[in-house]
Structure formats: C-alpha cells, structure tokens
C-alpha cells in the first residue's frame, strides 16, 4: 500500500513532446510507470517512446482510461494545463513546472479543492511509490527502495540525498513525495501527514522542511495531537539570511517568520527529533522505530 500513486495508477503526460516531457517520460517508463497517453495540443497522432499523443486531456483520458496527470508544460501555460487535467477529473495532478505565476496557482489549487482532486506542486519533483514500481515524478528511481516509511519534502535533490541515506541504511519507503518549492502549493504538509495516517502500511514519517511559511509548524501541531507513529524531521536553511529567496520561491524568511529555528522548535515541542545533517535522518529513524 501507499498513498496517491499505486500499481493501478495510469498516467497522462502533458507536454510529452517537449524536451523535459520526452526525457522524463522515458525515465518513468524505464522505472515501470504506466504511462498510457501524452497530450500536446496540435500534435495528435504523433508518438513518443511508443506512447500516443492527443490534442486534449479529455480525449487522451477517454481513449486510455487514465487516472492521473503529470505536467511538463512551460510556466505561462502550466496553469491552463492543470485546469484541463482537473476538468477531466484526473487525480492526482502533478505539476513539475517551476515559475508558475502565483495567481494561476491559486486558481488551480482551489478548483481542484472544489472537485476533491489533489494537486501536487507546482515546482515539485513528483510522487514515487517504490513498492509499485510507479513514479509520477522526475525523481531518480534507483535511490528509493520499497518499505514502510513515508517521506515528504519541499525540495528535490535534498529528498534524494535523504532517500539514498535511508536506502543505504536498509530503510525503505512506502511513498515519497515532493510538496513543491513555491509559497502556494496544492497538497500541504499537514494534508500529506493525514494521507499517510490513513495508509496502514506506512509505519513512520520523515518530514523534510525548509525556511519560509509555517507549514511545518502546523504539521507538527497536528502530529502532536493525532499521529502516534514515529516522525523524524529535517529543516534546511538554518543559516539562511532573512529577506533572501534561497532558490525556491517559497524559501524566504519574511521579517521574523519562517525561520528554521521556529520550525525546529515546533517539531521538538511535538516530540519530533530533527536531524542536524541529512545523513542523521536514517539514524534517527532507526533509533525511533
């Protein structure tokens, strides 16, 4: 078992004919992902890695019984692509694209919410469920091994770093997901905790946060009250200066809010040990499981 993506997930790739879309479709297929169709308006009839391309999401879904979408469309058009996937009732909708205008993000997130659909991202590396050999993601599959720890993060390579450390320590993952590096993202940290809470095969959680906002503080408060299984945290940006965007649009300390110190304190107050270095995550998991 897992969350969001399992063996039955059937994926549409929006923007499959672009450089990123083509490259990552290849890597997903190689990993085992069931990609059933691609969409690029105006390119119906083409095929990429043997996957048929359609003009619209609805046509692709109807022809191939798709359940989920991953979006590689350039930022100016990504909001529209997400709205199209939401209109076609695909779930989840994973938006890889970075630099999507926040106004477009707000619109897609609330339309999805209204319809009960999960948007992951934007600016996410996606979702991977190693046990089902399915990734709706740009994550390198080989660093993740199957197991029973849920992993959520606001970044990409840092997630791989931590996952690789877990794999080396013999700890496997039920599902790993990138929440996205933007200030406004679809699935929030607290919602991800709730999803993992409902998955009976996830026996522990790793919450990888970073400076900016207070999603980690809120999740910590929820965990303290409701989540009984072991949780380990990591917060990036302990040494980041205030007022600077540290690579991610959402990674910014504004005034006195969004600091790593506040997040670490909230996690510790909730009984969550916070790793000082990425490699400490696996050790803390072993100690607490």
């Amino acid at each position: 078992m897992a969350i969001l993506v399992d063996k039955d997930t059937r994926v549409i790739v929006q923007g499959i004919t672009g450089g990123q879309g083509t490259f990552h479709s290849g890597s997903m297929l190689e990993y085992g992902t069931k990609i059933v169709a691609g969409v690029t308006p105006g390119k119906a009839g083409e095929s990429i890695h043997g996957i048929p391309v359609f003009d619209s999401v609805r046509e692709a879904k109807d022809a191939h019984d798709a359940t989920a979408s991953i979006i590689f469309v350039p930022a100016p058009f990504a909001g529209d692509a997400a709205m199209e996937a939401i209109a076609a009732d695909l779930n989840p909708v994973v938006v890889i694209t970075e630099h999507v205008p926040v106004k477009d993000e707000i619109r897609m997130i609330h339309e999805a919410k209204r319809k009960g659909i999960t948007v992951i991202g934007p600016n996410t590396p996606g979702v991977i469920t190693p046990g089902a050999k399915q990734k709706v993601a740009i994550m390198p599959g080989h660093v993740f091994s199957a197991g029973n720890v849920g992993l959520m993060s606001r970044s990409g390579t840092l997630t791989y770093e931590i996952a690789a450390g877990m794999t080396n320590a013999g700890i496997g993952i039920s599902t790993a997901l990138g929440l996205g590096g933007d200030p406004c993202v679809g699935l929030t940290t607290i919602e991800a905790v709730k999803l993992f809470e409902q998955d009976k095969d996830t026996k522990a959680l790793v919450v990888v946060g970073e400076i900016g906002g207070d999603a980690e503080e809120r999740a910590a408060a929820y965990i303290k009250k409701n989540y009984d299984l072991p949780v380990v945290g990591f917060i990036a940006g302990r040494t980041a200066p205030p007022g600077k965007r540290m690579g991610h649009a959402g990674a910014i300390i504004s005034g006195s809010s969004g600091t790593a110190a506040a997040k670490i304190k909230a996690m510790n107050d909730a009984g969550i040990p916070v790793a000082e270095k990425p490699s400490d995550v696996a050790r803390l998991l072993k100690e607490n499981m």
Binding site: S155, V208, M246
Partner: peptide, 10 residues
C-alpha cells in the same frame, strides 16, 4: 537543487 544547497550551507 535549492534544498540541497541550503543543507550544504548548514
């Protein structure tokens, strides 16, 4: 990657 860069600074 932004998260890894921040973690490296740390």
């Amino acid at each position: 990657g932004a998260g890894l860069t921040m973690a490296t600074l740390d």
